Simulated scan of single mutants.
Amino acid sequence: MQHLDWNDLHDFLTVARAGQIARAAAQLGVDATTVGRRLRRLEARLGRTLFEQTREGQVLTEAGETLLAQVEAMQRAADRIEARPDSGALSGLLRVSVSEGFGTWLVAEHLPAFAAAHPGLTIDLVASSGFLSPSKREADVAVLLARPAQGPVVASKLADYALHLYASADYVARTGAPTRETLATRHKLVGYIPDLLYAPELRYLREVDPALAPQLRSSSIAAQARLIAGGAGVGVLPHFIAGRDPALVRVVPEVTIARAFFLVTHRDTRQLRRVRAFRAWLVELVTRHRAALIGGEG
């Protein structure tokens, strides 16, 4: 057997976990052609076919499943070596997956201080509509809207947060203050696109009233906040977003929607020094900003 390149094995591992070459390439920061070429090189050196191409992406063959178990064992061994305590500075790549709102309005604002304290780290903040999976090792740390039901992960509640109904002051002056009874009949509603929801916890309007349906819809909470602030209608926003925007006023004040964030890491990598450091920093961050999250003053 020819000498195997660890980089090829790492690419194989990424594709196996992602299920698609294109998705794996995005995680690796290279183009899909490069990943495909490396996989073919690995298969040629092993003399085995590792993946079958399907409509959905790449599916492991029996030989691929066998290799995956071996490469994951190698990765865990490498992680354990890195996890040994020492006095050196943190280094390497830290990938963090968070929701768009939490990542943009809270984490990103304060992350420069953490990055400055650990200049040897490369930090990927994936703040988007959807989450990377710690159980598949797509992310080192994830902040999710629900505790995972299964998988090789460790999860704990990070923070509670509150959401309310908001509109712009101009909208309220133009249409009158919404009430629970008039939301469905007299007001335009802003919310998520139902078939593009990435988590059931985002069905906010249904929790207010099952009959409510948004007329202006976006997969982005940032876009929804801009639409509401611009006078487009009434919508549900987290207090940590809307509470700092002077263009927004809370309406239907008796409505409060409670949610929670959960901090999730893979059980094999949660003791890595960079992961431990970020977890501690994030817990301290939400503790300091608890009032902004739950809707109090401060």
Rank of each mutant, 00 (worst) to 15 (best):
Q2A: 13
W6F: 15
W6T: 13
D8A: 11
D8H: 10
H10A: 14
A18F: 13
A18L: 10
G19W: 07
Q20V: 10
I21V: 15
I21G: 08
A25W: 01
A26P: 05
Q27I: 03
V30P: 11
T34G: 08
V35D: 12
L39Y: 09
R40A: 12
R41V: 03
E43F: 08
A44I: 02
A44W: 05
A44K: 13
T49N: 01
L50A: 04
L50E: 03
E56Q: 15
V59Y: 00
V59T: 10
E62T: 06
E62A: 09
A63C: 03
T66C: 07
E72P: 15
E72Y: 13
Q75W: 07
Q75P: 03
A77K: 15
A77E: 12
R80F: 03
A83Y: 06
G88Q: 11
S91K: 10
G92L: 02
L94I: 00
S99C: 01
E100F: 00
G101A: 13
F102V: 10
F102S: 05
F102A: 11
V107H: 12
V107T: 05
H110L: 14
L111I: 13
L111R: 09
P112S: 14
A113R: 12
A113T: 12
A113M: 04
A117R: 10
G120Q: 15
T122K: 13
G130L: 11
F131R: 10
F131P: 00
S135L: 04
K136G: 08
R137E: 14
R137N: 07
E138N: 05
E138H: 13
A139K: 02
D140G: 04
V141Q: 01
V143Q: 00
A149R: 11
P152L: 02
S156N: 04
S156P: 00
L158S: 06
D160R: 03
Y161M: 08
L163E: 12
Y166S: 13
Y166D: 14
D170K: 11
V172P: 11
A173V: 10
R174S: 15
T175C: 10
T182C: 06
L183Q: 03
K188H: 07
L196T: 07
L197H: 03
E201H: 04
L202K: 04
L205V: 04
E207P: 02
E207W: 01
L212Q: 05
A213R: 15
S218H: 07
S219N: 06
S220N: 05
S220K: 07
I221L: 14
I221N: 02
A222K: 07
A225L: 09
L227V: 06
A229L: 02
G230V: 14
G231M: 10
A232K: 12
A232T: 13
F240M: 07
R244L: 04
R244S: 02
R250I: 13
V252G: 09
P253H: 07
V255C: 05
T256K: 12
F262D: 01
V264T: 00
V264R: 00
T265R: 11
H266P: 00
D268H: 11
Q271L: 11
R279S: 15
R279W: 09
A280H: 11
V283W: 06
L285W: 05
V286S: 01
V286W: 00
A292P: 06
G298A: 03
